[in-house]
Each structure stands twice: as structure tokens, then as C-alpha cells.
Write a protein that binds this DNA or RNA. Structure first.
Length: 358
DNA sequence: AAATCCGACAACCGCATCGGA
DNA sequence: TTCCGATGCGGTTGTCGGATT
């Protein structure tokens, strides 16, 4: 009985101990970061639970590890991802999927968390705008045939002075070597995370990295290969319903506001929800599938020319933006009519099959 | 000027895997 | 072989600041 009492007391005591420990959660304070950095400086990384217990931090080992690996580690690179890094992420993700840690190994200074966030906030956003699944073949092709070439262009523009061949970055050997992220670069601070002020280093500030003011324990603030875009175009569906576009308007159909193209005809095909591009006053992101489609217009196939103008209003008012315009300009854009079919296929969804010759 | 929305990112959580006892 | 703690990974959430209404 007394033994049992003793056991009960021990349990109570240990519970009390846990309560006294009351683990902190949420944003890290400057003091906590210093504690963690100092401890690691003395004892090295690893043994995170031991670290958590011995360092005086009221955090879990997991939390300490994450804080160190994602933020405090000296070689962490900050600032926006460079086009090279973005390209690598797209390329490696197409190979490995959501293997963030593995992808991060090829981007020195970047963490899996950062890459994962990039994918979710940038890439998946694009997929949403295109109304396709980010893991779908359609989207992968769009990335490969449109986004990657754009990045290559950016890289070419910015690296011309450095005499770097951007396409070479995609060479398997290059990737295998883990090159591409500017490995040798010192930590970069810029963008929203300008953290001239952020640790490691000292600073604090950055977008979200202002420290919690009150470190009180009770506070819980829970916190085609890229170089050959056309080669990997998705299969082109053949829609007999739309063949009239070519028949009637020839290889180049005008979708501008001049009235040459009767957009209401699309309605009769059940395509009235099809958004063909910018209407008057519409503001579109500068990177859209329309650019991709245009970039694909290298071979045969009829073209649909579209002027950003009132003529599109009826169309674009119907659906969300499947397509968008060029960088701030609503000048002429071209659609290959078979690509138009493709967009239509997306809109029609279940009723038609990709690449099937209907 | 205030309210609301949205993007970006830090941090947490649950699960899987690994390695030592 | 099994158990258990430590660690790693990927998904998700919470929070904040800037943009928009």
C-alpha cells in the first residue's frame, strides 16, 4: 500500500515536473536562439533530446533540431531563390516528386522546408490558376515546356556576363554534382527575408523573424528538356467539334474585338466557360500558360490570334483564368487552334479524352 | 483609415526509419 | 528478435506583413 502510495507520489511528482517544464512553442526568441547556438558551438549538433534537456531550452529536441537546421545553421542561404535554383527544383521535382530533403541536397544552403514552401506557394499556385493538378502530366508538361524555358531565358540574361550556359545546369552530371545553387556563395540576404538582421549572424527582423517579445514560458503563440520546349508538348487532342475553327477561319483565326471570330459559337459547343485570355481591364500574372502555348507555336497548325480587347470579354468573363496575357501587355497573342482544342478539353473535362482522336 | 485578403514562411505534428540495448 | 528512443521526412497549420478593397 505504502509502496503504491510512493508510486502514486512519484507519478504526481513527475507530472508536476512536466508542468514545471512546460515546453515552449511558437516563435523562437533571441535568447533561445543564443542558447541553442552556444550549446551547439560547445557540443556540436545531434542528440537533440539531450540538447533540449541540457541547454536550458524549454523546447523539444525536435523543435531545436528544426530551428537549427532551418534557420540558425551558419550555411543557410537566405533570400529569394535564384532562377537557377528554381530550375533545379522544377527539374528535380519532376524526377523525384515530393522528396524535399533529397532535392534540398542539390541546393546548397537551402532547406527542405524552404523548397517545400516554394513549391506550395509558387508552383502549386500556378497549377491552381491553370486549374490542373500540380502533379498531373499536363502541368508537368507546362512546367517543362514553358516555365523552364522562361527560367533559362532569365538565367541566360543574367548570366551572360558570367559566360554560363544555363542549359548545362540541367545536365544530369551537373545535377549529380549538386551544382546549381551557388554553392560557393556566402549566405545571401535579400528579398523579404532581408535579414541583414537575421540570425545566423545576428539579426532579426526579416519578414517573420521578429522575435517573440515575451519569452514567458506560459506564452503559447503557436505559433522536353528545358531547352527544347516543343519536343515535350502534351498530346494534342483532335476535336472534330472544333475543326470548324480552322475550316472557317483558316490557319489564323482572329479572336480580337473586331468581330472576325464569333465567340458565341463556342457557347454552342459548350465551351462558354472557356477563358481565352485577358479582357479589358483584366490584370493577369506575367507568367501564364498562354505564353507557354505561344511558345509552342513553332510548327504547323493553325493559329488563333488574339488581341487583348473587348472581343474577349464575353469569353473571359465566363470562367476563371485558364489563360493570361503577356507581361503587362495586351498586345497580340497567338493560339494554335489545336492548343485551343486542348484548352477546351480541359474545360470539358470528363467528356473528352486527352490525345484521343475524337 | 479600417477591414479584409493573400502570400510567404516558420514551426508543429504525425509517421517512418534507424540503431542500440 | 523485440523494444524503444532518436532522428528524419513530408504534410499541415499558424502567424505576420503587405496589398487590396
Amino acid at each position: 500500500m505504502s509502496q503504491r502510495k510512493g508510486a502514486m507520489a512519484a507519478v504526481t511528482s513527475s507530472k508536476h515536473e512536466e508542468e514545471m517544464m512546460e515546453l515552449r512553442r511558437g516563435p523562437w526568441t533571441l535568447e533561445e536562439d543564443n542558447l541553442l547556438m552556444n550549446y551547439i558551438a560547445c557540443h556540436g549538433e545531434g542528440r537533440w533530446n539531450l540538447l533540449a534537456r541540457c541547454s536550458g531550452l524549454k523546447r523539444t529536441g525536435k523543435s531545436c533540431r528544426l530551428r537549427w537546421l532551418n534557420y540558425l545553421k551558419p550555411d543557410i542561404k537566405r533570400g529569394n531563390l535564384t532562377p537557377e535554383e528554381q530550375l533545379l527544383i522544377l527539374e528535380l521535382h519532376s524526377k523525384w516528386g515530393n522528396r524535399w530533403s533529397r532535392i534540398a541536397q542539390h541546393l546548397p544552403g537551402r532547406t527542405d522546408n524552404e523548397i517545400k514552401n516554394y513549391w506550395r506557394t509558387r508552383v502549386q499556385k500556378q497549377a491552381r490558376q491553370l486549374r490542373v493538378d500540380a502533379n498531373s502530366a499536363v502541368f508537368r508538361d507546362a512546367v517543362r515546356c514553358y516555365w523552364m524555358p522562361r527560367l533559362l531565358e532569365k538565367m541566360a540574361a543574367t548570366s551572360a556576363a558570367q559566360q554560363v550556359d544555363p542549359a548545362a545546369l540541367l545536365h544530369p552530371a551537373h545535377i549529380a554534382a549538386g551544382v546549381g545553387g551557388g554553392a560557393a556563395s556566402p549566405p545571401v540576404h535579400g528579398g523579404q527575408h532581408d535579414a541583414t538582421s537575421a540570425p545566423p549572424g545576428s539579426g532579426y527582423g526579416g519578414h517573420h523573424q521578429s522575435y517573440a517579445v515575451d519569452p514567458s514560458p506560459s506564452t503559447s503563440t503557436s505559433g522536353c528538356s528545358g531547352s527544347t520546349p516543343a519536343a515535350a508538348l502534351p498530346p494534342v487532342p483532335c476535336f472534330s467539334e472544333l475543326s470548324w475553327v480552322v475550316d472557317q477561319y483558316g490557319p489564323y483565326a482572329d479572336l480580337d474585338g473586331a468581330g472576325a471570330f464569333d465567340s458565341s459559337a463556342l457557347g454552342s459547343l459548350g465551351l462558354d466557360g472557356l477563358d481565352l485570355g485577358p479582357a479589358d481591364g483584366d490584370v493577369y500574372p506575367d507568367s501564364t500558360l498562354l505564353d507557354y502555348l505561344n511558345s509552342a507555336c513553332t510548327g504547323g497548325g493553325a493559329m488563333v490570334t488574339m488581341m487583348g480587347g473587348g472581343g474577349n470579354a464575353a469569353l473571359s468573363s465566363c470562367g476563371g483564368a485558364i489563360m493570361g496575357g503577356h507581361d503587362g501587355d495586351y498586345g497580340p497573342s497567338s493560339w494554335r487552334t489545336d492548343e485551343l482544342c486542348q484548352a477546351a478539353a480541359r474545360k470539358l473535362g470528363d467528356h473528352h479524352q486527352w490525345g484521343g482522336g475524337i
